[in-house]
Amino acid sequence: MKKNFLIILILLANISINAQTTKMNFGLKSGINMSKYTPDVYVGNSRIVEYQGKIGFYIGGYSNIKISKKFRIQPELLFSNQGTKRVFEDISLFDSNGILIGVSDIEETINESVISLPIILQYFINEKFNLESGIQLGYVINRKQETTKDSFGLNQGNNSQNNNTNYDKFDLGFNLGLGYKISEKLRINIRYFLGLIERDNSIKPSIFSLGIEYEI
């Protein structure tokens, strides 16, 4: 069902672009992002898992299609490094006799390599500023998980590479952002992405990004 939905969205976007194209430009773009999973995990009123932001980057290309004086469509193809920091709070360790040894948080960093296809509608307020929004399809090509803090010394430094089918690889979400024209060839933009479908039946990615675009 998810695959069919993604295919339909891509076809509709292509049809819209082909039907309305009047002028097309191409460019390159890159930037940094701050990503995390949502929501945190609670048992009753107690939070047992907290997701924190992780800094990453993205790089790729785009085509910009003018459909009127105020509106443009910008399909993009990006490679992104994103993910989250995950904190398991107040983990208790007991010895073989059931005696409490200590209580501590355990922290992990999850790194994802993602191929993304944003399809962005831009509205130009004036020659300098534009608003933008649209859908984004994603595919996780690799995910690594590393324990970065473990006061008990059980797992720290352990690094696992998950490239099998134990996690959801497809992603779908919504972008909202603002762009600014620095010069004839250069633009900067800031965006917020929110996942619309649950991955692994529990998480959605949330990403702030800041980047620069260069028209070639």
Rank of each mutant, 00 (worst) to 15 (best):
N175R: 11
G179K: 07
Y192L: 05
G195C: 03
S202I: 15
N189W: 03
I203V: 15
L186V: 15
I197G: 03
F193Q: 01
L194E: 13
S202L: 15
S202A: 15
N201I: 07
G177E: 03
R187S: 12
R191I: 07
L196H: 01
L186W: 13
G195F: 00
D200K: 08
E184V: 14
G195T: 01
L178M: 15
F193W: 02
N189L: 06
I203R: 02
S183E: 03
N201M: 09
R187D: 12
I197R: 03
E198T: 04
N175A: 10
R191N: 07
S183L: 09
R191F: 03
Y180N: 12
Y180R: 05
F174M: 12
L196F: 00
N189Q: 10
K204N: 10
L178R: 11
K185D: 09
G179L: 07
Y180Q: 11
K204H: 08
R199T: 05
R199S: 03
L194N: 14
F174L: 14
N175E: 04
N201G: 06
L186R: 08
L186E: 08
G179Y: 02
I190Q: 07
Y180S: 12
R187N: 13
G195W: 00
I188H: 01
L178F: 12
I182K: 07
L196T: 05
Y180P: 15
G195P: 03
F174H: 14
K181Y: 10
I190F: 10
R199W: 02
L176C: 13
I182Y: 08
Y180V: 13
L196G: 04
E184Q: 15
I197S: 09
I182D: 08
K185C: 06
R199N: 11
K185F: 12
L196Y: 00
G179D: 06
S202Y: 11
Y192K: 04
Y180H: 11
G177L: 02
S183K: 13
K181S: 15
F174E: 04
F174I: 09
Y192N: 06
G179A: 08
K204F: 02
I182T: 05
I190L: 11
L186H: 10
G179M: 04
G177C: 08
L176H: 11
S183F: 14
E198R: 11
I197E: 02
R199Q: 09
K185A: 12
R187Y: 15
G177Q: 04
R199E: 06
R187H: 14
Y192I: 04
G179R: 07
I203Y: 01
K185I: 11
K185R: 14
D200G: 05
F193S: 00
G195L: 00
R187A: 12
E198Q: 11
L194P: 13
N189H: 13
L194W: 05
D200T: 09
I190P: 09
N189E: 14
I197P: 02
S183C: 07
G177H: 01
K185E: 14
D200S: 08
I182Q: 05
I197Q: 06
D200Y: 06
L178V: 15
L186Q: 10
G179I: 07
I188N: 02
E184P: 03
I203F: 02
K181D: 05
R199M: 05
R187G: 06
F193D: 00
G195R: 01
